[in-house]
Design a protein around this nucleic acid. Sequence first.
DNA 1: ATTCATTTTATATTAATTATAAAATTGTAA
DNA 2: TTACAATTTTATAATTAATATAAAATGAAT
Lengths: 133, 133
Amino acid sequence: MNIANHLLTHDIKPSYQRIKIFEYLYSEMNHPTVDVIYKNLVDNIPTLSKTTVYNTLKLFVDKGITSTVTIEDNEVRYDAIVDNHGHFKCDDCGHIYDIEIDFSSLLYNELENFKIDETHIHLKGKCNKCLTK
Amino acid sequence: MNIANHLLTHDIKPSYQRIKIFEYLYSEMNHPTVDVIYKNLVDNIPTLSKTTVYNTLKLFVDKGITSTVTIEDNEVRYDAIVDNHGHFKCDDCGHIYDIEIDFSSLLYNELENFKIDETHIHLKGKCNKCLTK
DNA sequence: ATTCATTTTATATTAATTATAAAATTGTAA
DNA sequence: TTACAATTTTATAATTAATATAAAATGAAT
């Protein structure tokens, strides 16, 4: 994918930092925190500041090309996938898996006449790799 | 419900502060933050400290009589209901509704051979009251 | 009453995030 | 090219939730 174009089509000027941050999100798919993103990019962009990472991710979320993942309560993670899906976090290795979820099977009879904008699902446990090692 | 007994049966010594904190959680059912709990109790317990609220809730969660609700990323909320259920937060009034969810309808084919310990579901949108006012 | 364990409290610290304003960069029109 | 304006990035300070630590208070048992 052409990242500069992707940003442009979402009304975001493709600055060097923005391209690199999105590139990291998109290629790693590791649901990184701000800190992880910063530490991974600062070697190649020595002038990078954490504020830029915060600003950029906020912009990405506002423009709809990034979503946030809140599993633990002391850190926000970011995801280049924005269409509805769930997450599984392994308590052992800490890895966060994207999982497909058929949201249509979920019916909330108590929410009649409610307007549902977002549905967040995340699970915790142990992944197959950690269970067999 | 007899709160002192409830605490005792879960291996928690029923101190005055602990009883009052659980009583607040259980009677209000408002998914309060630590700050909200503290502010509501400090008038009647002038010596109460926030550290006690933190400690007590951590104890309650460890002993399984309270669960945490993480919807926004900058605040943890607490819930006296511990069996599996979901939450709906209204973006307008901020109220958090408990909702019953049939978790059995959710199948995760990607998680074969994974061990699932917890499932968290929360929704956002506008509640019926806010939609009609 | 004395001792020991538990609970509560005050204080300091940590760490994620936000606010603010200056510096750097980019784009554009003369 | 130069000058100017707008945008983006950066450094610094401030805020805030949560944790760590140790002293003070409480409670139970002898």
